[in-house]
Design a protein around this nucleic acid. Structure first.
Length: 497
RNA sequence: GCGCUCGUAGUAUAGUGGUAAUAUGCUGGCUUCCCAAGUCAGCGUCCCGGGUUCAAUUCCCGGCGGGCGCACCA
C-alpha cells in the first residue's frame, strides 16, 4: 500500500488498525448506517468518555441512564412523532421519492401547506394535476416516512427506539427534582445509543442509524438563565462565533469574541446559554482538537429543531467532509417539560428560588455531543504522514495504548523476559501498556505510530547491566535513557503534562 | 429513494469466459536488529442470489454494500 498523505491512506488506516469497521455485519454484505468499533476504536472511545465524565463531574453534572425504547406516548409528548414523520410520495413509474409537503410548497407557493392532512395534500395534487417532474407520471398515495425506528413490545404494543437521549432524561424530571433537593440548576447528563432511520445514510460514522450521544442538560429557572454564577467565571473566554446574520450576509469567517461581548451585542441572549457554549468548547479542547478547526455556527430559524428557541452547532473542520456538526447546543426552553407535564398529567411547576410560593416549569439548556463524530474528527485531524511515516498525533491520554514495550531483539531470552517484566509492572501501575516483539524494532515503532501511542520503551543489551531503558517519543522520535526504578512515575507525570 | 459508477487476500490495487496476481500485511525461522533492512518457509481473496454457457470472479438480471450528483438530514 502506498503511503501518502491522502484521505485514502487515512481511510484504510481506520480499518487496518481496528478503529472502525463496517457497515456491519460485513460478512453478510453490510447494513447501511451501522458500524462497529474494533479494539483500538473502542479504547479511544472509552478514553474520551473517561475524560468527559471527569470533566462533567468538575462542572457539577451527574449521570443517568435510561432505556433506549420508550412507548409512543413519550414521543407524542416530545413532539417527535409529529415532527419526525414526513409525508412522502413516490412516482408511479420511476419510483422517485419526494417530500410531499415540500413538493407542494414549491409548486404552490401561495398556499399554506404546513399542517395539511395527507388527504388534503392529495386533493391538492389532483386538483392542480401535479405530476412527477422527472418523468411526468402520477404519484402513488402519500405515505409516511418515519425517522424514528418503530418496534413492538410485549403483546404488540407500539414503541420507538429513542432518536435522542435527551427526552429520556427529561422523563426523570420529578425524580431529579427530589434527588437534587431542589438545588437549581440541576445538571444532568446521559450517554447512550440513539437511533434514527435515515433515508440514505452516508459518510460512514458521521450519519449512522445507531449512534452514541452524550447529552448534558441543565434544568434552570428563568432568573438564573439571566444571572448565572458559573457564567461570571467564564465570561471573558473568547469563542469563534458565526451567527446567522453573518451567514445571511455570506460571511463564513468566525468572529472571535468573548461571551461577555456576545451577550452585550445580543448575539447570545442568555448568560446561562453562553455558559453552555463554553462547556461545549471546553470539552472539545480537552481532547486537544486544534483551535483553528473549531467554530460555533448558529442555526437559522428554519434550521432549528421543533423544541429549540436558539441553537448553535459546535463544528469541526474535516478534510473529507468539510465543517461537520459535533455538538448541538440548544435552548429548549420549557417546551419539553411542559409537554411531558401535559401528557403525563404531572405538575412540573416547582419552586426553584428562595420563595417557595413562586413556581415555574424549569427551562432546559442542552449540550448534545455525537460521540462517533468526535472519534472520526479526532482520527482525521490527528492523522499525519511524515516522510512515509503514518502518525496519529492523538492526545497521549486518548491513545489506545499509553506506552508500548519492546525487547530490542526477541531471540535473546533474557532481554525478552526483562521487557515482559517491565510491561507487567506498567500494567500493575494501571498504565495502558502494550507488548510487542514481532518484526524489526523500526517496524514496531511504526505500528505504534499508526495507533497514536505516544511513548515506546525499548529494552536492549545494556538494559541488562544498567537497568535503564530507552524511551522513544512518537512525534520527535527522540530517545532518552531512563532508569526503570521510577518508570511508572515518569510515564504518569508525562501523561499529566 | 432516483441517476451515474464501483465491489478481487487484513489493506491498496492488476487481471481473466477455463476458479487468479502484485505490493503491503500477517505467522514461523535465521540474522546482537534503535526507526517499514535482508533472507528462508508459510497464510490468505473474486459481495450475495438467479440466468446464459460444457464452463461465470468475468456476460446478463435482481439484491446488498461503497463513492459521486440530486433528494432527504427532526
Amino acid at each position: 500500500m502506498k503511503i501518502e498523505n491522502s484521505i485514502e491512506t487515512f481511510n484504510s488506516l481506520v480499518k487496518r488498525r481496528g478503529f472502525i469497521w463496517g457497515p456491519s455485519p460485513e460478512i453478510y454484505g453490510g447494513f447501511a448506517g451501522f458500524y462497529s468499533y474494533g479494539p483500538a476504536g473502542m479504547a479511544l472511545k472509552n478514553n474520551i468518555l473517561e475524560l468527559f465524565r471527569q470533566e462533567c463531574r468538575y462542572f457539577g453534572f451527574g449521570e443517568v441512564e435510561c432505556p433506549t425504547i420508550m412507548p409512543s406516548i413519550v414521543w407524542e409528548a416530545s413532539g417527535h412523532l409529529e415532527r419526525f414523520i414526513d409525508p412522502v410520495m413516490r412516482c408511479n413509474k420511476c419510483n422517485t421519492l419526494y417530500r410531499a409537503d415540500k413538493f407542494l410548497q414549491e409548486n404552490l407557493p401561495d398556499l399554506m401547506i404546513d399542517g395539511l392532512s395527507f388527504e388534503e395534500m392529495e386533493k391538492l395534487i389532483n386538483k392542480h394535476e401535479l405530476t412527477c417532474p422527472k418523468c411526468g407520471n402520477n404519484f402513488q398515495k402519500i405515505e409516511e416516512y418515519n425517522l424514528m425506528l418503530k418496534t413492538s413490545v410485549g403483546n404488540n404494543v407500539t414503541a420507538y427506539l429513542r432518536p435522542e437521549t435527551a427526552t429520556t432524561t427529561y422523563l426523570l424530571f420529578n425524580r431529579l427534582d427530589q434527588d437534587a433537593r431542589r438545588q437549581y440548576p440541576i445538571k444532568i447528563y446521559q450517554f447512550g445509543k440513539a437511533y434514527r432511520n435515515e433515508i440514505s445514510p452516508r459518510q460512514g460514522v458521521l450519519r449512522m442509524r445507531s449512534f452514541d450521544q452524550f447529552e448534558l442538560q441543565m434544568f434552570i429557572s428563568r432568573e438564573q438563565e439571566m444571572e448565572f454564577v458559573d457564567y461570571e467565571e467564564v465570561k471573558l473566554n473568547k469563542l469563534p462565533l458565526l451567527d446567522w446574520k453573518m451567514q445571511e450576509k455570506g460571511i463564513d469567517k468566525t468572529n472571535l469574541i468573548s461571551l461577555d461581548k456576545a451577550i452585550k451585542d445580543k448575539i447570545l441572549k442568555k448568560p446561562a446559554y453562553a455558559f453552555c457554549l463554553y462547556v461545549a468548547h471546553y470539552l472539545i479542547k480537552v481532547l486537544s482538537i486544534p483551535e483553528e478547526l473549531i467554530r460555533f455556527r448558529q442555526h437559522s430559524l428554519n434550521e432549528r429543531a421543533h423544541y429549540a428557541d436558539d441553537a448553535w452547532d459546535l463544528e469541526i473542520k474535516t478534510r473529507q467532509f468539510g465543517w461537520i456538526e459535533i455538538c448541538g447546543i440548544h435552548d429548549r426552553t420549557d417546551y419539553d417539560l411542559r409537554r411531558h407535564a401535559e401528557y403525563s398529567k404531572q405538575n412540573f411547576e416547582i419552586s426553584m428560588g428562595a420563595d417557595p410560593n413562586i413556581k415555574e416549569v424549569p427551562q432546559v439548556l442542552e449540550i448534545a455531543f455525537g460521540i462517533d463524530r468526535i472519534i472520526y474528527t479526532l482520527l482525521e485531524t490527528t492523522f499525519n504522514v511524515e516522510e512515509g511515516r503514518i502518525i496519529l498525533k492523538l492526545n497521549p491520554n486518548l491513545a489506545p495504548n499509553t506506552v508500548a514495550v519492546f525487547p530490542l531483539v526477541r531471540n535473546k531470552e533474557n532481554i525478552r523476559k526483562f521487557a515482559l517484566k517491565i510491561h507487567r509492572e506498567l500494567l500493575e501501575n494501571r498504565i495502558g501498556s502494550f507488548y510487542d516483539a514481532a518484526g524489526s524494532i523500526g517496524k514496531r515503532y511504526r505500528r505504534q505510530d499508526e495507533l497514536g501511542t505516544k511513548w515506546c520503551i525499548t529494552i536492549d543489551y545494556e538494559s541488562l547491566d544498567d537497568n535503564c531503558i530507552t524511551l522513544r517519543d512518537r512525534d520527535s522520535m527522540e530517545q532518552i535513557r531512563i532508569n526503570i526504578s521510577n518508570l511508572s512515575e515518569i510515564i504518569k507525570k508525562k501523561q499529566r503534562e
